[in-house]
Write a protein that binds this DNA or RNA. Structure first.
Lengths: 118, 118
DNA sequence: CATGGCGTGTAGTATATAGTACACAGTACA
DNA sequence: TGTACTGTGTACTATATACTACACGCCATG
């Protein structure tokens, strides 16, 4: 079974709540500026995941990687989308090529580029 | 000025129409299974670009790269999205790293991976 | 001169997205 | 024992998305 957005968020929040009462559903809702009932429905997967902006605020609040949270919501963060849209053919080829490459290989490339080997 | 989705499509269609009467707006609309008035509005950017599925049918009909057409519509094709969502942190890092790399460098890496150098 | 194909204008629709507002019942604790 | 906080149920809403349906006027041509 796949982890859903809601389950993941609930689990993460309850973990934080165990050692910090500031992570009640209502407190989190307050900080990320949505209604508590909405967070409740989100965590039980009763509604679709929220918007990108709300997911990013939530990720920050829960100290989670926003790319991971966005992925669980089936979304790609808009800065990545922006990069792809500027050079669609190039990135399409890159991603399709890397799709089946093992993590190690992809990481090696990232490192090579970061180290200026181009 | 940026080329819009509509302008691009209209220009492409009219180019094809010049040597083939099968590329009238109505004929294209018929083949891609939407109303002619809808295509008219799309080409004049009077409405937002159509759905991914419709864009792909349109790209095929106009013999255009669907990734390019999707990009003009501000969309990323769902197979690319799927690849990113499976390994969000990895691909986020990859794309952010490649974002500022010159085309040549990215292409070199793509070729290296394709040629099994990993 | 009417018939067929052309592009376009107006109006309307179904479904999805992204939430709000507020009442309610249970629990803790002072 | 009351009050403060917890999570949840119900109902509603505004905006966006992705189109359809159909009528209109223009032009070519047979």
């Amino acid at each position: 079974m796949k982890t859903t957005f809601g389950c993941f968020v609930r689990e993460r929040r309850e973990t934080l709540l165990r050692e910090n009462a500031d992570y009640s559903l209502r407190k989190v809702a307050g900080r990320i500026q949505v209604e508590p009932s909405y967070v409740s429905k989100i965590e039980r997967d009763q509604v679709a995941p929220p918007s990108e902006e709300t997911i990013i605020r939530l990720a920050k609040d829960l100290k989670e990687d926003s790319d991971v949270l966005l992925a669980l919501a089936g979304k790609v963060s808009s800065d990545l989308r922006g990069a792809i849209l500027k050079r669609p053919r190039l990135f399409a080829e890159l991603i399709r090529q890397m799709k089946n490459a093992p993590d190690r290989a992809v990481l090696r490339m990232v490192r090579e580029v970061r180290d200026g080997k181009w």
